[in-house]
Write a protein that binds this DNA or RNA. Sequence first.
DNA 1: GTCTATAGCTCGATAGAC
DNA 2: GTCTATCGAGCTATAGAC
Lengths: 189, 189
Amino acid sequence: MSTQERLIEATRELLWDRGYVGTSPKAIQQHAGAGQGSMYHHFTGKPDLALAAIRRTAEELWAGAEEVLSAPGSPYERIEAYLRRERDVLRGCPVGRLTMDPDVIASDELRAPVDETLDRLRECLAGIVEEGKERGQFAPSLDGEEIAATILATVQGGYVLARASGSPAAFDSGVRGLLALLTPGSSGR
Amino acid sequence: MSTQERLIEATRELLWDRGYVGTSPKAIQQHAGAGQGSMYHHFTGKPDLALAAIRRTAEELWAGAEEVLSAPGSPYERIEAYLRRERDVLRGCPVGRLTMDPDVIASDELRAPVDETLDRLRECLAGIVEEGKERGQFAPSLDGEEIAATILATVQGGYVLARASGSPAAFDSGVRGLLALLTPGSSGR
DNA sequence: GTCTATAGCTCGATAGAC
DNA sequence: GTCTATCGAGCTATAGAC
């Protein structure tokens, strides 16, 4: 793996665990096994390197989610597969956690990949919900865009609850609650 | 307001906006209009001051939520009031955002108020859902604890979506989706 | 391309005058 | 109680040798 690659990968790991504000160039260099000059040769500075790392993380997350959501199965089954998918719950979402970083939010460039990824996910989920309505799996009164936002929010918020309690249980509990509400034929009342 | 008070209030504001890692003692002192020595006279250091600030923020949040959730009304109405309550959406949750702070999560002392607050909220919501089941407002198949986790997660995740897009719309959308799923007599299918 | 050296600044904390 | 002065360390970045 090239030095440039190692720098990006090290940055991705550190951004996931410590966020942008909590990640120093020095820590990145040590993680990547590279010197100061090496980093500043390949990137103009911390924001430039972070942008490369965030873009790659966003792409990977989207690719993985898209794979699960486009797999064969009914709309409910695909949403369930997405929600129940294996996750490193206590580590949090590598994309969503960036929204709590003041420097990321302050920069349109750094925020863009985060925004686009969550937006694409929402569109994708909304389409699946609409398909479920057509098939009679979900109530016609439901709004695809809204339910998509609820699904995404439950996942993102699940990470928050899990990290607060130090256990993945709260994440799973929230997911089970949402699935119960979405379950064809037995939800709401 | 005493210097000690100003220090705590300044810390609360900065923790809300920039998190623990992103908040420096110097910034706190400037915000509070106090010198170095003043801060270290009243508190042993940054963790001590942050603990006082986090505890107060957690207590205030719980008090406000408890007030809305214990107001008169049916279970569904109380949950709706909680979800639709006015919030500084783009600023995020002053308690929930701390879960993305590596130093907060690493310290049992700093994490405790966060954990306890969300846990109490979950218990409170779970009781309301159970009450709704008894009244026939929610389906008997629903689990109070799980739905409570879903509600809390939708709120916490709503902040994430809103901050990612730079607009409160996504938060409101997720809340409307959840309320549709919870609506007596018209949810799921 | 990669290294070391160094800059100028801020970090979190302490010392000691008043 | 509050202030200024100062500490050693780490921050982000640049310079320049190799």
